Structures are given as structure tokens and as C-alpha cells.
Simulated assay, not measured.
Amino acid sequence: MPILVCGSLAFDTIMTFEGRFAEQILPSQLHILNVSFLVPALRREYGGCAGNIAYGLRQLGAHAVPLATLGNDGQEYLARMQALGVDTAHVNSAAESYTAQAMIMTDRDNNQITAFHPGAMSMAHENPVPTRKDLTVAIISPDGRDAMLTHAKQLHAAGVPFVFDPGQGLPMFNGEELKQFIELATWITVNDYEGKMLSDRTGLSFQDIAARVRGLIVTLAEHGCEVWEGGQKTVVPGVKATEVVDPTGCGDAFRAALLHGLEQGWSLARCADLGNRMGAAKISTRGGQNYTAPSL
């Protein structure tokens, strides 16, 4: 059944810095920060959370339906999604904007610095949740601020269960707005850093948050993830990557597995286990959308 993926479509410019950021940035001189990083490796990939998640879902054989907005330079991206079998019926185009652009630099310790131009993503709220009866599950992933707020309300009103995945968009919202997302969502997924911010801004512990939704997942990178249900925590062990090549997009690979499992009616722990394997498969490959999903 179709899975609605609300989020961004972006072009990712991915750069590799062969040193360590910590060795180039002097804490005592942050007030006059002026640094330059030599990046011998650079490539351009198809990215954005909706694009990455939809790609992962197609790798698993699922029916992915992105709800997103491209810019006037997005025809190449649209053609790629269609060639992959992604349902693009609800991908809009903003004629006067560029497609969102992310510039991502990774150091030798897999720390990342990212610059992001939202472009057409800023108008994603003008693309409403479709009124179709066959949607079984959805996700609110990082997107334009207004789009995330609007689509969450529309999904809740339509009775479509959805995952709230604020990701790097979490700082855009205050405590009351985040509480509203929690009240509307069916499940929530964050990494450990985002989870701490979500807890701090709302004043709610993980137990409190889990009591308000069907499930909360807190990912812990190579250490796996915590699955909170009914105020109780289960730790799902991580999967060791065969080779750490590039962490870009591994969180979206996890989300794709989560959505696939939820659509199949799996337990949250089983969904998280596949997510850990998908994330490990992604981190072992190079590029934004070029990994092979593990067997189910």
C-alpha cells in the first residue's frame, strides 16, 4: 500500500575533508572564526529527506509517494524518481525557485558541517496532503517549517497514522509547537542529540513522550537504538558496518525501513532492527542514493 513521504527533495554537494574539524577550529578564537577546509573529494548527489526515504522504500519493494516541491532546476531529479518507480503524482514544481541545495562536508571522524539553501522547499506548504483513501502510513520528515506544521495537521485530520521525524528541522520549533506535533503524531523518531533537544524544549522525558504516542525511537548510531513503548524502553542492538565510507543519508535509510515495517504491521522493535541494518548498509557505501537494501 502507498506510503506518503512528506519532506524535502534536494541536491547534495558532498565533500570530504581528510583532516579533523577539531584540529582546525580554535575554541579560543570562535569570536573571529575564519577557517578554510581543503576538500579533495567532491560529488553531487540526489538527496533531501523525502528523496532518500523514497529511494530506500523502493529498495525494499514498497510503494513510495513523496509529497514535496522541486525548483525550476528539478526536472532531472523528477526523471530519476520516475525511473526508479517512485510515484511522483504529488511532487510539485516552484517555477521561481531553485531546488533545495545542501552542502555537506565530512571529516575523517565522520563529523559533518552542513550549509542548506531551502529554495523551493520553502513553498512545500502549498502542496497539501492528498485526499486519497489508500494511504496506510506517512512520515513528516524535515521540510519547510510551514509545511511540517500544515501536513501534520492534515494527516491527523485525515486519520492517516504518521511518524514525526523532525531531524535537523527540530530547532525551528518551540516547545509548544513540538508538543503539538507529539499530540498529532502516531510515532516519533529522533537521534540521541535530537531526542535531548526535544525533551529539553518540551519539558517531557522520553517516558512522558512515549506515553503520548504509540512509540518513540531514539537512534544511537552504531550502538543501535532505544524503542520506547508505553513508557518502557527496549534496546535494539546496532549492526556493525563492513566499512565506514560515508554516513550521509543513513538516518533516512533507517526511516525507510521503519516505514516499510510499520506498513507491514511489524512490531516496532522488528522495524528498528531492519532500520539498523539499512543504516549500516548505507554507511558502507558511497553516495546519497546508491546502496542495496539488506534482505528482509
Rank of each mutant, 00 (worst) to 15 (best):
M1S: 15
P2H: 11
A10H: 04
T13H: 14
I14Y: 00
A22W: 03
E23A: 13
Q24R: 15
P27Q: 12
S28K: 11
L30Y: 10
L30E: 08
F37Q: 11
E45V: 06
Y46H: 07
G51H: 02
G51T: 02
N52D: 08
I53V: 15
Y55L: 09
Y55Q: 07
L60A: 10
G61L: 10
G61Y: 03
A62D: 06
H63V: 12
L67I: 12
A68H: 04
G71N: 08
N72V: 03
N72K: 06
N72T: 04
E76R: 07
E76K: 06
L78K: 09
L78E: 05
A79Q: 15
M81E: 06
G85L: 11
G85T: 11
A89N: 15
H90E: 14
N92L: 14
N92I: 07
A95T: 09
S97G: 04
T99P: 05
A102S: 15
Q112V: 11
I113M: 15
F116H: 10
M121D: 10
M121T: 13
S122Y: 05
S122K: 13
H125V: 12
R132Q: 14
R132N: 08
R132E: 13
I140K: 03
G144K: 05
K153R: 15
A158W: 01
A158I: 02
Q168T: 07
L170I: 12
P171A: 08
P171Y: 09
M172A: 09
M172T: 05
A185M: 05
T186I: 01
W187Y: 12
I188D: 00
I188K: 00
T189R: 03
A211C: 11
R212Y: 04
G215F: 01
L216F: 03
G230W: 02
P237M: 07
V239M: 10
K240Q: 15
K240V: 09
D246V: 03
P247G: 08
P247T: 12
L259T: 00
G261Q: 00
A280W: 03
K282T: 12
T285A: 15
T285L: 09
G287K: 08
N290M: 09
